[in-house]
């Protein structure tokens, strides 16, 4: 069990390097930069040009939410296809009907939902 977890040690090292890089870059810019020299003008988003007005957080299209929802659904579909894809070759000889037919009907049912979303122009960003 210990060796099971220790095989992800490279992943942990990779994570630590990326976090260290981000923190190090920020820390270096604070140390090497001139921290004290801040004015109100320097802190506004555009130092030169128009003075910004209004709230900074613009309202976003609800399309973003729909895209995220569809992404979650397709993600879950892929999760269920993954174990099928791993065992596909071994099981093909034994249970041909359920391996091919089961996944075909699984994808067929999902294809109905996909067609509905396509028909409703859910994937069409511009409409």
């Amino acid at each position: 069990m210990q060796s099971q977890l220790s095989q992800y040690l490279p992943v942990l090292m990779f994570l630590m390097v990326t976090i260290g890089f981000a923190v190090g870059t920020l820390a270096f810019s604070v140390i090497a930069g001139k921290v004290g020299r801040r004015t109100r003008t320097k802190d506004i988003p555009y130092e030169c040009g128009m003075v910004p007005e209004g709230p900074g957080n613009a309202r976003l299209s609800v399309k973003f939410f729909l895209v995220a929802l569809l992404f979650v659904l397709f993600d879950i579909e892929v999760v269920f296809m993954y174990p099928w894809a791993v065992t596909y070759k071994e099981l093909l000889a034994k249970h041909f009907a359920s391996v091919v037919g089961g996944m075909l009907s699984f994808m067929g049912i999902l294809f109905v939902g996909y067609l509905y979303a396509l028909k409703k122009k859910a994937f069409d960003w511009k409409s």
Binding site: L73, Y116, A122
Partner: peptide, 21 residues
């Protein structure tokens, strides 16, 4: 159960499209 799950996911997708659009 896998097929039932496909139905649930399809219902969820249709529901998401109906609500958001």
């Amino acid at each position: 159960p896998l097929e039932a799950l496909a139905l649930v996911l399809t219902a969820a997708m249709i529901g998401a499209v109906v609500i958001a659009m």
